[in-house]
Amino acid sequence: MRFHFRQFTPFIAFLVFCCAGVSNASVSGGPDKKCTACHATAAALQSSPTAHKPLREGRCQWCHKTHGSANANILHAGGGRDLCVICHKAQKPVEGEKENHGFSAKGECSVCHASHDSGRKNLLLKEPQELCLSCHEPIKNRLALAHPHAAAVDSCINCHNPHPSASEHLLKAKPTDLCSACHEIAPWQKPMRGWL
């Protein structure tokens, strides 16, 4: 449920005040206790081994501003890539980055990743292959043809990098190098039938 944080300001202020009193009295209360005391859904996910590291360690404040923020869900930044790259520095925008992953238009990181826990590795919202093909329908159709590429059926990320990059078709390397990882292409390097 979405709510306006402002409406709850006095309430939350009161709550923090009370919690501060409690934690002073009982030493056992960790820093996260303040949040999970109310946010039961997040509290339930905290013990999951696949949960987001800050949640597992009770570092809610890494993403959320505890006293309030102008952003939805009292997040530090707008909730998209700007927030995630605070920690995931490798995903900072690179020069010449291709826009082709429909990335910014569809909500950035949260298109593929959950924020607290998804029950899967890398907080992925679906199984990896299913996740890619849920958008790339023409590819999905190709993979269903009589002669599909085994590497493509196995996993898209055999050849493609899932995150934004400057490479054509988000490929991990140039096509011949990728192909030669499995296929012997040396015979094709020779002139053919006198034409090449």
Partner: peptide
């Protein structure tokens, strides 16, 4: 003689056919 980087995918579809 070296193949061009895109030589394979000129004739083959990388996903299936």
């Amino acid at each position: 003689m070296a193949l061009k980087p895109t030589s394979c995918i000129t004739c083959h579809n990388p996903h299936g056919s």
